[in-house]
Nucleic acid binder design. Structure first.
Lengths: 191, 191
DNA sequence: TGTACATCAGTGAACGCGCGTTCACTGATGTAC
DNA sequence: TGTACATCAGTGAACGCGCGTTCACTGATGTAC
């Protein structure tokens, strides 16, 4: 039932974002009485944290698939392609699953279980791996590497957020172009 | 009274973000009966849109002040300093006024009055002006200029959002360093 | 093999709450004659 | 100068709603002897 509750929450978040993940509605979808949720979660915030984790997992899975799809002869080329694929996957996710995207990055009261360490890979892990690949291939100076994942993440995340916010009135064409331009902006500053 | 309602809304948004801007609480603060709000706004969404506008105005004002403070001998140096000052002002605003920051960029149902055109300057206008300054000073190739404001805005906005979201557990030191690094990342890709 | 008991996931009913919104109203302000 | 009237910002009371959460409970499942 716990898994069913999280799934239902994910479904609610899919269209409506975090605010749509309402405890009573979640239990309703599972076909269970509201207070049943308290068997599995301390309170609504705990349920929300679990759903957020699941949403993040969806994004992580897409990134993993995208990484697996990259085929390239040389390590250098592969590192570059991976970098681009990561950005595109991230932006695709934000565009096609806006509710889950919002859910994945919503601020939850419960502090994230980041402490664990040995969990499933997170989006940032893939960026780190791709950057290390660039360094190994000699495309990126090692001294520029430290913490470089953050500005890159910020840039991609930022364009995703802006396109859903102040720039949401742009045409689809302009949005796609802006996404491409932003990824090019990152690539330009990497090489 | 209308202005008082918006002010009260701004105050509520300051600590608590958009969700804290509750129609009844807003009227309560003004010392007026709840339905009075409907004399001035069609519904809650309209009130929220007005408050969002005001929050955006606060940010715009800070940027204007920051621009006025920049003193430099040469146009080239001034353009560079302005660019940096804009980024720092933006991140300062996000850090010191998280509620207003969230409010300013919240998605509101009412479509933004962007159509007007001749309104007060918006954050993006300052970035455009600074970029034009860089081009005029010969620091930026004109062919790179078109739409360059968007990736830059995205990067700064992205780091602001991440620092309030997934990276909120970072130490203040790390946060400041990440902000600085991100601004350096932008500057590096501009020159 | 059979009985007594603990565990615990899910039930049924209810709570208090604050919300956005609607209604018919009052009473001050300004305008027309 | 005085009277009749329209305007309209704010009032008072109420509505229905759905929420998160708590309580004492039932009844199936598994374990100990």
């Amino acid at each position: 039932v716990r898994a069913a509750l999280v799934d239902a929450g994910l479904e609610l978040a899919r269209d409506g974002g975090p605010d749509a993940v309402v405890l009573r509605e979640v239990t309703r979808r599972v076909g269970v009485v509201p207070n049943t949720a308290y068997r599995h979660f301390a309170d609504r915030a705990a349920l929300l944290a679990a759903v957020r984790e699941a949403a993040l997992g969806q994004l992580a899975q897409r990134m993993a698939e995208a990484m697996a799809r990259v085929r390239a002869r040389t390590p250098a080329r592969r590192a570059l392609l991976r970098m681009g694929a990561l950005g595109r996957t991230y932006l695709d996710f934000a565009r096609t699953e806006p509710g889950l995207f919002e859910m994945a990055f919503a601020a939850t009261d419960h502090l994230a279980p980041t402490a664990g360490g040995a969990g499933e890979p997170r989006p940032l892990d893939y960026v780190n791996a791709a950057l290390d690949g660039l360094v190994d291939a000699g495309l990126l100076a090692p001294e520029r590497r430290p913490n470089l994942q953050y500005p890159i993440w910020a840039t991609v995340h930022g364009v995703a957020v802006l396109l859903r916010g102040p720039l949401r009135t742009l045409s689809d064409r302009d949005k796609s172009q802006l996404e491409a331009q932003t990824l090019a902006f990152i690539e330009a500053s990497l090489t």
